[in-house]
């Protein structure tokens, strides 16, 4: 569900960047980037079985 929401948010941010005010587009971008980092941290919990 979070991935659908992220794609939807990016689609909206693209349309805002193209048609809307610049500060809003950059603000949306920042929110999405933080959400992506949070999603990565949430999904990257498996231990890496590396030998180095």
């Amino acid at each position: 569900m979070e991935f659908t929401a992220l794609f939807l948010a990016i689609t909206i941010a693209m349309v805002v960047a193209w048609r809307g005010p610049r500060p809003l587009a950059i603000g949306l971008f920042a929110v999405i980037l933080v959400a992506c980092v949070a999603t990565l941290l949430h999904h990257a919990t498996d231990r890496l079985t590396l030998s180095f």
Binding site: F3, F7, I10, M14, A25, I32, C36, H43, A44
Partner: peptide, 14 residues
Amino acid sequence: LCLLQRILFALLAI
């Protein structure tokens, strides 16, 4: 993780 990479490719477009 593949979806997250696609998302970030799309975000590159902003």
